[in-house]
Design a binder for these strands. Sequence first.
DNA 1: AAAAAAAGTGTATTTTAAACACTTAACTTT
DNA 2: AAAGTTAAGTGTTTAAAATACACTTTTTTT
Lengths: 230, 230
Amino acid sequence: MILSTYNKEDKVLLAVDCIIFGFLKDELKILLVQRDFEPEKGKWSLIGGFLKKEENLDKAAIRILNHLTGLNNIYMEQVYTFSKVDRDPAERTISVAYYALIDIATHDEKILKQNPIQWFNLKDAPKLIFDHNRMVEKAIARLRRRALSKPIGFELLPEKFTMRQLQKLYEAILDSKLDKRNFINKFNSFDILIKLDEKDMTSSKKGAYLFKFDQEKYNRKVEDGFNFKI
Amino acid sequence: MILSTYNKEDKVLLAVDCIIFGFLKDELKILLVQRDFEPEKGKWSLIGGFLKKEENLDKAAIRILNHLTGLNNIYMEQVYTFSKVDRDPAERTISVAYYALIDIATHDEKILKQNPIQWFNLKDAPKLIFDHNRMVEKAIARLRRRALSKPIGFELLPEKFTMRQLQKLYEAILDSKLDKRNFINKFNSFDILIKLDEKDMTSSKKGAYLFKFDQEKYNRKVEDGFNFKI
DNA sequence: AAAAAAAGTGTATTTTAAACACTTAACTTT
DNA sequence: AAAGTTAAGTGTTTAAAATACACTTTTTTT
């Protein structure tokens, strides 16, 4: 009897589309898939799928990401729900956009084994199906806000990284040049990085010191009211 | 043939729940409804309804708000989509939360005519059904962020207001005391208020000058790159 | 005439952000 | 082996923004 309460209401398909950001060689990238079913077969698309009855949206996003890339334990966050009536010409579909952050260097072998998916530089990504370009825009805006208030380096960089890489990451996300000294001074003032004795020798003769995030220290600081703010 | 593409996927009910904020007498308030159907009949709830096939979510939110309050032309914004599997015990329902901002003084006659709905001070609102309390929390967080980056006074205050009211509004939203002189100096530096010759005499013997937002000027400034930041 | 109650107003100090350029280390070339 | 090349590394000065802070004005009430 309770189960008949909402009987007369319309039901819809609920999709999840993933905006997967990666960072490699000073470039912010996005992972796209070539659609292998109609409509829009062959066109580039976000990685997506449909919500199942027995899972919530976060779980669906994780499942969909994992299914198409093999990746696990990836940072994901809900962005926005898109609901234009004719956004998918095949059938009325509402789509919840999630974004994910991936360190490409660490994960790429897994991903590249998979077939019709490919990293694109954000700046020269192709036109996408449906409203996926709008989704990407929203996700970038969200990523930008997040970068200003939380250290995204945890997710987008390899475990060990140079200050230059960290700066380039922020420059890519914020789409603006930063001053080397000011950036380093500010980041050091947060006191959440560990300087290693190791150097990265790939990008200069002198070599650049490698750093790690001190996740524990960061967590403790956040609990004590620390407010990361670039 | 195209229309059969997604045939095997699960469909769900998609609800819209509205977190309706109002401001009156220095207090931030929220509009709630006493549910008149099962499950949870008689309990307090957010104002909500179901998405229909022929409308998008923004339209649904507007319709639902209008239907239960008679209000039109209200500022609304999508907050988050809630999808816990058993969030509604009657049936699998996903709910998209929207928040709305209302100047109670201007709109209250309309609202109060309606039946089982009522304003509560945010601080002593009752326990709500399902996950509605979490929705309210998310919406407050969003409102707070918005208050820091956009002049919410446009929506939450009457057309004419005193500086004190404006300050109290920000204090209520940010849940913290602000310094009178610093607040006024900062707000004046934005140069988006018009000082009227009229005074509000209701709260003091001396009377307090009334102000209006200069919407046009604000819009022009935003176009020119102005960044409101409290 | 004194008391009360809210409105209104400006400056000094501290903190944060921004601008700015040379030295070091290690390899490469001649 | 000296000079050149390339990216790494490092502090100080200046400007701007945020914060702290207290008395005067107006008008009504007693």
